[in-house]
Design a protein around this nucleic acid. Structure first.
Lengths: 338, 338
DNA sequence: CTGAAAGCGCTTACAG
DNA sequence: CTGAAAGCGCTTACAG
């Protein structure tokens, strides 16, 4: 059933029905009631494509993931948060995956040219991200999850990666650790630089210069965490403490510690960054794991709000947030062994 | 730039331009060339909403996830495969998340009424899934990942869960194991029933009736695997072998084995079902883990093909596949201890 | 092989 | 507060 038929059926004009359904004020309450009731009864819902063509709004936001490894549990949580919030506003989420950076840029061009989405969300930016430059050039609204340098201001939400890792490092220093390792993300990403800077500054505050052998970069996966930890443990002077970039890395690192016949906490202290996966809580590991805590899902929800505001006309420079990160101390961090 | 402007610009009618771009045969090759070149040059791309309204096709397929726990790494892999394939056909993927089963049904109703998607993909069905009944009633095309009972035939892709777990169990029986446990998925889902049946039949073939204490149901997460394994190990007669429903469950189970001071392989044999996550390979665990192997990403790709065929008119009963599952024997399965 | 024009199903400025 | 009608930007049956 389309609007014309539906309107005829209840004896009103298309105009009035459209306005009643759209929540416009200039409809008599009784009329609106009647329309809403009839729509529910006959199951009438506007054709979304017609609506989009008429209004010029796509009613959707786009999200592009680079294929394979980087589309993991973090993405799931983020998407969950985003989707929950966007749904209440009737906004769709369009997901595309690509294999290369070029393909991602091409996807944005396509989004812009075909007016398929009203805005996009960019995640895991590099220090000077080409996607941001392109989107500004295309005039396609966007919000970035993370920070980057750009010619003009843009909307973003980031967590305080610097502060988080600095706090984790200071906690370990306070416990007497001197050889502390960092399992970091991909070196080209801003968050990895921020974390490393926080790490360095905290250590240098205690007169320590971390040796390059104790800094590792890569994917936040169980496997990478495992291998990196094995490499650390094979060093002539292995660390007594390690900061893992995610709970996945931490799982792998803990396995490596145990397989080496050592104990997490007593022999090797561990702090992990926790994005708060509902299926992997640091409280349920043995020992419980000290973490820097920042829920990925909450970030997704907040970014949905930010996109909506951006589309309502809020200027990007008024949509910039950095969230503090909480340090939660549990049993995986103990005094450094003698 | 819209079609009218673009057509005027190159001195052709909208009709001809539209046909050239759409790949219709009745355009002179030279004309098509010219149009394509100009489109690339001026960056003209049809407005997707107008195209959708004119053709009546949404150009998108829908995917609904139940919130929280069930939207995990499995979903990511599947989505990755699906998206890669659909992209080449210019089909978008619409992702929605919901909190309840009712909300999922409502989402499908909305999809159908607003013609927002051309088809949907249903995953993790129960034995008699309400979503299937609803979609058939709504006449919204769909493909199911998994199997279910329904009044009319429908398109599906499933793996041979029965055969996979039966093979895993027989492998363990061959190694002399008698007390074998199964970490299964949610009891209401078809795949969990199939797996349990494969498990029971294999054991009964060897004259064994598995005690209920060795059957566990729940989420395929590290945490659940850990707790379940701890419960198994605390039994008066703990198992000597365990089949884990996913690599995540296996990780948790292995941790529990190690924390109990036991060794995976020598004390407790382990087979896991492997959906082939790029970031968690059974070959890189210690010991390497024997698995029943079936790539989730490949399933996503194939289901994209099936959706496309369905929309082209292939009848659902011609789109039903069950994939065999490979048993890969590695070091986590050893002869049963005396 | 090409084009003029109707139609897809909405929204919204304009008139009353 | 309500309605007639133009317009959003495409596709496609029909005519030539």
């Amino acid at each position: 059933m389309n609007l014309k038929e539906f309107a005829a059926h209840i004896g009103l004009s298309q105009t009035t029905v459209s306005r009643a359904l759209g929540g416009y004020p200039e409809v008599r309450p009784a009329t609106r009631e009647r329309v809403l009731k009839a729509a529910a009864e006959f199951g009438y819902q506007p054709n979304i494509s017609a609506q989009r063509l008429a209004t010029g709004r796509a009613g959707a936001i786009g999200l592009v993931f680079q294929g394979d490894g980087r589309f993991g549990p973090h993405a799931s949580e983020f998407l969950g948060g985003l989707s929950g919030r966007l749904q209440t506003d009737g906004m769709d989420i369009l997901v595309a995956t690509v294999e290369t950076q070029e393909a991602e840029l091409a996807a944005y061009r396509r989004f812009a040219a075909s007016r398929r989405v009203d805005a996009v969300i960019v995640h895991t930016p590099t220090l000077r991200d080409r996607r941001i430059a392109l989107l500004q050039e295309l005039d396609l609204p966007f919000v970035v999850h993370g920070r980057s340098a750009a010619a003009r201001p843009f909307a973003y939400l980031d967590i305080d990666n610097y502060g988080a890792i600095a706090a984790a490092a200071r906690h370990l220093l306070d416990l007497g650790h001197r050889r502390i390792a960092l399992i970091n993300g991909y070196v080209e990403n801003t968050y990895a630089r921020d974390r490393e800077q926080g790490f360095r500054d905290a250590l240098e505050g205690a007169g320590i210069r971390p040796p390059p052998t104790l800094l590792a970069y890569g994917a936040f996966t169980d496997e990478a965490g495992f291998r990196t930890m094995q490499r650390f443990l094979a060093l002539p002077e292995p660390p007594t403490a390690v900061i893992a970039g995610s709970m996945m890395s931490a799982l792998g690192a803990m396995r490596a510690v145990r397989i080496a016949g050592l104990s997490v906490g007593r022999d090797i202290s561990l702090v992990a960054h926790d994005d708060v996966f509902p299926y992997l809580s640091p409280d349920n590991l043995v020992p419980t794991v000290s973490t820097t805590r920042s829920p990925m899902r909450a970030a997704g929800e907040r970014m949905a709000d930010m996109v909506l505001k951006l589309l309502q006309g809020t200027p990007p420079e008024a949509l910039q947030e950095v969230w503090p990160v909480e340090l939660v101390i549990r049993r995986s961090t103990e005094r450094a062994p003698e």
